[in-house]
Simulated assay, not measured.
Amino acid sequence: MANENKVVEAIKSKKGIIDEFKEFIAKGNVMDLAVGVIIGAAFQNIVTALTGSFINPLISLITGGCKTDENGNLIPVGGQFKINGVAFDYGAFISAVINFFIMAVILFVIVKAVNKAMELGKKKKEEEEKAAPPEPTKEEILLTEIRDLLKEK
């Protein structure tokens, strides 16, 4: 009997955890965070492609030039140096720094735009609330009806 009670209590506590998790997921902040992560990953892919396709060849040209393979694709030559046979690829580091700054600027612009839109929405809502008179309460409606009935008599 004691074991059955423990099993029932464990099931009830797990059900509570599941309900609590559903409530947590349903909150807007979690969904906003998930959307932000997905959009961030998409922007990261775009920025990585930009850096790899355009910025890295420029870095290679500036730091030592490029050569082409048999298909005519550019192969970066510069952007690294060797000490005792160990290659230090500072071109990849510069590329990562540029990648970071591009992502930071994009995120800054997005956050700035969202904050501006939210601020405008808040101002518009406040203006609408000021323009529209508040709805009369039930008591006010009742008192108005009583007043009108007394005026008729």
Rank of each mutant, 00 (worst) to 15 (best):
F108T: 14
V105R: 05
F101G: 04
K124Y: 08
I55R: 01
V77T: 11
V111D: 03
N45L: 09
V105K: 08
L107V: 03
A26P: 02
G40A: 11
C66R: 10
V37L: 11
E128R: 11
K22Y: 13
M118G: 04
E23C: 04
G28K: 06
K27S: 14
N73V: 06
F21V: 15
A41R: 08
I46H: 07
I62Q: 01
G91Q: 05
V114S: 01
V37T: 04
A117T: 06
D32S: 09
I98P: 00
V111W: 02
I75T: 07
V97S: 02
K122Y: 11
N84S: 06
P76F: 08
S53C: 02
P57V: 13
I98N: 02
N84T: 01
A117M: 10
L58N: 07
L74Y: 10
V77I: 13
Q80N: 01
P57K: 14
G72P: 07
F93L: 11
E119L: 04
L61G: 13
V47Q: 03
N56Y: 00
I75S: 12
K22W: 09
S53T: 05
M118R: 15
G64M: 12
A49V: 13
T63W: 03
Q80S: 10
E127G: 02
K123N: 09
E126A: 15
V114P: 00
K22L: 14
K124F: 03
V47R: 02
I46A: 12
I55L: 11
N71V: 07
V35T: 12
V97I: 15
E126T: 11
K123A: 07
K22E: 13
L74R: 03
M103I: 06
Q80I: 00
V47D: 02
G64W: 06
